[in-house]
Design a protein around this nucleic acid. Sequence first.
DNA 1: TCCTTTGTATCACGGCTGTGATAAAACGCA
DNA 2: TGCGTTTTATCACAGCCGTGATACAAAGGA
Lengths: 196, 196
Amino acid sequence: MPRKVDAAARRQEVVAALYRVAVRDGLARVSLRTVADEARLNIGSVRHYFDSQPELMRTAMRTMLDRVADRVRVRLTALDVAAPPRARVAAAVALLAELLPLDQTRRDEVTVFLDFAALARTSPELYDLAAEAAAGTRGAARRVLAHVTGARPDAVAVETLTSLVDGLGINAVLHPDLVTAARAEKVLHAHLAALG
Amino acid sequence: MPRKVDAAARRQEVVAALYRVAVRDGLARVSLRTVADEARLNIGSVRHYFDSQPELMRTAMRTMLDRVADRVRVRLTALDVAAPPRARVAAAVALLAELLPLDQTRRDEVTVFLDFAALARTSPELYDLAAEAAAGTRGAARRVLAHVTGARPDAVAVETLTSLVDGLGINAVLHPDLVTAARAEKVLHAHLAALG
DNA sequence: TCCTTTGTATCACGGCTGTGATAAAACGCA
DNA sequence: TGCGTTTTATCACAGCCGTGATACAAAGGA
């Protein structure tokens, strides 16, 4: 079976191009043609790796969610139950900061996530991914609270932390002059420190 | 000068139709034709009241922001500085609850606001409106905190409350099964009660 | 070398978009 | 009854969009 190019790598290149278009111009400007141009590929090539536009969108959203989930998972397994309170708060901040736009990588992630989440509300093709992401965030918040407080967190505390992180990330992306990276991290730290 | 129809009322009807399309199908599905159909008007009529599509979009976003701002303003002037702590917390919750999707009206508002806010990031036509809304929310949060705590709130507390309300509203719209209206209100109340 | 698979590239189609240009109807006032 | 303005309605155009179909180059095993 002849195969010169790495198909998986090509698909990732296309997804990366989609990210760039989405971050720069918004998800509304993402099309097979704009993504192909951004990837310096012919639209025919893009279609060779993605059977349809919805499949490309789903793959792109899936890739982003997986990348974030992987980082969070690493932070979760690194939580040290024997650590002193201050270190536990610091670890908790570091974990949830994976969901905040504190550097260019995370900024791009939160940016496209916002567009995808808004689109998923009315897109059957993406809705389950958004639901999965929302559940995942709440799971992480629950574990973080348990780690910081040492107790089983109630639903209100979980939702408070989850919505705070979500709102913080979105506002930091949409209004970077009002919510800088430093301030976002400070807000998260203050909230968790008050609970420890 | 002949004039049978109230031009301002007609414009509002068109804007209302735009809301319905945006809530039902997403802002991406909003076009002069879909809005005209929803309003049971000819596209020519719509264009008679709105010179261009960007003007329609701006007017729609402006209308929504004004409506919310008016309600918040009423709540702000109703704040009683002589009220006991519990009543002050209740008034604070009621005020910021104007930004939460606790009934159908507010749900629709938050829904279209999310789409508009995401779009405004890359739309010069809408960006200033989003910035104005973000500043307004922070102003309201600042006054609410002052009313509840009796002190001048710091920037971290303001941003915590603002992002919490924003995140809560967005999550209640995107994931109504995870964040019900009752839970959203409870989360807001718990946060403010803890500060009083 | 030939042949099959993989990858690139291009064309055409229907459908949607905003918009300019007109036409026709409806209405109030003279 | 006209006249003039407002309002409604249609048509056409260029520009996007996703996609089916198709052609052609490249590559590696037989």
